[in-house]
Design a protein around this nucleic acid. Structure first.
Lengths: 142, 142
DNA sequence: GAAAAACCTATTGACATGGTAGGTAAATGG
DNA sequence: CCATTTACCTACCATGTCAATAGGTTTTTC
């Protein structure tokens, strides 16, 4: 199941974000009111159920979805698809969506910020990224 | 010199890209026709010279700058600042600028591409990123 | 009470990141 | 010609993430 092209290199969005988003889409598309078992999602999405457990755990902790144990259990969305932004999903899964370390931690105060020639560009770019993903709704992907 | 906030997390742009860009800017700003020693750049940029060696090596290999050994040696740009795009610099330093693995390798042919609900978004986003960084020139940062 | 499901804990190998250390080769100025 | 300056080269390191796999426990329903 491992994708070799996914290894090593540092992408902005890892499998956590990509798979997480696909789980959300799957939950939205297959919503019938009751809980959807992870096995079904794993089968449809062709992702190992075991790995998805890790992904979905984060989504439960982050309040994106809720789970129910036992027979007839599974996962479901807590809001309507149009109420989720792709940005909030990716931020939860990736930790941050910032392109550079300097901007990811709001508390970090760079001593070079006054004279840094690149900071304005990173800020501008970060805003573009942020705007793109937070304007996009989960419902836009269905 | 190590920045704790820079560790572990996967940012789109690592120190290689950020420092590399700052070296380029430094070379552009301090261009007087002759070679600029790495020590001077390291001092001005407050980055360890040893680490910068690794960064600059990539830039030489990639043809962004040229170096000259011996006394009076150092590095210089091979083109005028307005002839460099930020995109080409970052792509060289980071390997790729693609946000997701699926799109980074042009030869990779995803078996799910037909039914993937997220692929169009990644493509759209990648284009935004690409356009942003390739329209921006090194000279825009001086 | 069996089955189905989430949930929990641990481990793994490979690799990137962000450096450090120490040495060799080349070119110049005096 | 030789000391100095500089790039250039090779190796190493600790830490952490990534992308999983493995196996067990709890919860719930039929």
């Amino acid at each position: 199941m491992a994708k070799s092209f996914d290894k090593g290199v540092n992408y902005m969005i890892s499998t956590k974000g990509r798979y997480g988003l696909r789980v959300m889409i799957d939950l939205a598309k297959n919503d019938n009111g009751s809980y959807i078992p992870l096995k079904d999602i794993a089968d449809r999405q062709e992702i190992s159920k075991k790995y998805l457990e890790i992904i979905v755990k984060k989504m439960v902790e982050g309040g994106l979805v809720k789970g129910s144990s036992g027979k007839g259990g599974g996962y479901k969305l807590v809001k309507k698809p149009e109420k989720y932004t792709v940005g909030e999903i990716l931020t939860l899964m990736e930790g941050t969506i910032s392109s550079v370390a300097c901007l990811a931690d709001k508390d970090y105060d760079c001593p070079r910020k006054k004279k840094c020639e690149t900071l304005p560009m990173w800020k501008e770019f970060d805003k573009i990224v942020h705007d793109y993903f937070y304007k996009k709704k989960l419902s836009d992907l269905l």
